[in-house]
Amino acid sequence: MTVSICTLAHGRSTHLANLVTGLSQSDVLPDELVIAVMQDNAYDLPGAPFPVRQRILGSGAIPLARARNTAAREAKGELLIFLDVDCIPHPACVPDYIAASRSHGGVFMGEVGYLPKGSTDAGVDFALFESVAVRHSERPGPPARGLRACEDYRCFWSLNFAMSADLFRASGGFDEAFDGYGGEDTDFGRTLSSQHVPLSWVKGAKAYHQYHPHFMPPVHHLNSILANAATFARKWGHPTMQHWLRAFVLMGLVERTEKGWRKLRDPGESEFALTRQQADQPYASSALVLAALEAQALTT
Rank of each mutant, 00 (worst) to 15 (best):
C6Y: 04
T7N: 06
A9G: 03
G11L: 11
L16K: 08
L23M: 08
L23W: 03
V34G: 01
V37Y: 04
M38F: 06
Q39I: 09
Y43Q: 06
L45N: 11
A48R: 08
V52H: 10
V52S: 05
Q54L: 12
G58I: 08
L80D: 08
L80T: 04
F82V: 01
A92C: 07
C93W: 00
Y97K: 06
A99P: 03
G105M: 10
F108T: 00
G110Y: 03
E111H: 12
P116H: 12
P116L: 10
A122T: 13
A122W: 02
V124K: 06
A127S: 13
L128Y: 09
F129E: 04
E130G: 00
A133W: 04
A144F: 04
F156P: 05
S164E: 03
D166G: 14
G173L: 03
G173Y: 05
F174A: 00
G182W: 04
E184M: 04
G189T: 02
R190G: 01
S200M: 13
A205W: 07
H209Y: 06
H214N: 14
H214Y: 14
M216Q: 12
P217G: 07
N223E: 15
T231P: 00
L245F: 04
R246W: 02
F248D: 00
M251V: 07
G260H: 06
W261K: 04
D266E: 15
D266Y: 02
A273N: 12
Q278E: 11
Q281N: 11
P282F: 06
A291Q: 14
L293K: 08
A295T: 09
